[in-house]
């Protein structure tokens, strides 16, 4: 048999394998080009508390989870419950990033559902969020002690996501200098 008669079959098998592999991919999730880079500079007002503004300097010296959320976001409400549970975890700081939201509504929401965040940055216009490459809520950035972005979780943090991906990463970053 000549090899060229086999070409269609080979070609088909290759495409088939590709499609089979493709079934387990997530085409909607866009990886962030910011991973491995220092967090973007920013200066935002805070939602609650005594500290009036928050900047990238506040991320230094500790492992941070920066969680982008909004009251209009349906999936954030689902995530919130688990975040409350996580908030008792002492190894890292959980920062909030309130995205294109109404301040009054946001405060009201936190009062009702509880506040898992240590500090909450407020981005009403969404301009700073563009610097972070935010494209949907909820999103969570994992930032190390040197304020380098190490991981981005797209979609809500669930128990499964926490146990399988985030927790091992957080523990690893904790042990880094």
């Amino acid at each position: 048999m000549k090899i060229r008669f086999l070409l269609p079959l080979i070609f088909f098998i290759l495409i088939g394998l590709l499609l089979w592999r493709g079934l387990s991919l997530h085409p909607n999730e866009i990886p962030s080009p910011l991973i491995g880079k220092a967090s973007p500079t920013f200066s935002l007002p805070t939602l609650l508390g005594t500290k009036a503004t928050i900047t990238e300097k506040d991320l230094k010296g500790h492992v941070t989870l920066l969680n982008v959320w909004a009251t209009w976001c349906y999936a954030c409400a689902l995530e919130h419950e688990y975040l409350m549970e996580l908030a008792s975890h002492k190894d890292f700081k959980l920062f909030g990033f309130n995205y294109k939201d109404d301040n009054i509504a946001a405060r009201h929401w936190l009062k009702e559902h509880g506040n898992p965040y240590e500090i909450i940055a407020v981005d009403v216009t969404g301009t700073t969020a563009i610097d972070w490459g935010v494209y949907g809520t909820p999103e969570t950035f994992l930032i190390d002690k040197n304020s380098i972005i190490r991981y981005k979780q797209i979609g809500p943090i669930t128990q499964e996501v926490w146990e399988k991906t985030l927790r091992p990463l957080v523990e690893k970053l904790e042990n880094e200098a």
Partner: peptide, 21 residues
Amino acid sequence: LLSYLALIIGGAFTLYSFRIK
């Protein structure tokens, strides 16, 4: 669907490569 595609089209191309001469 992919398995079925593999069966029908993979089968057809196999048949093709054996019989085309």
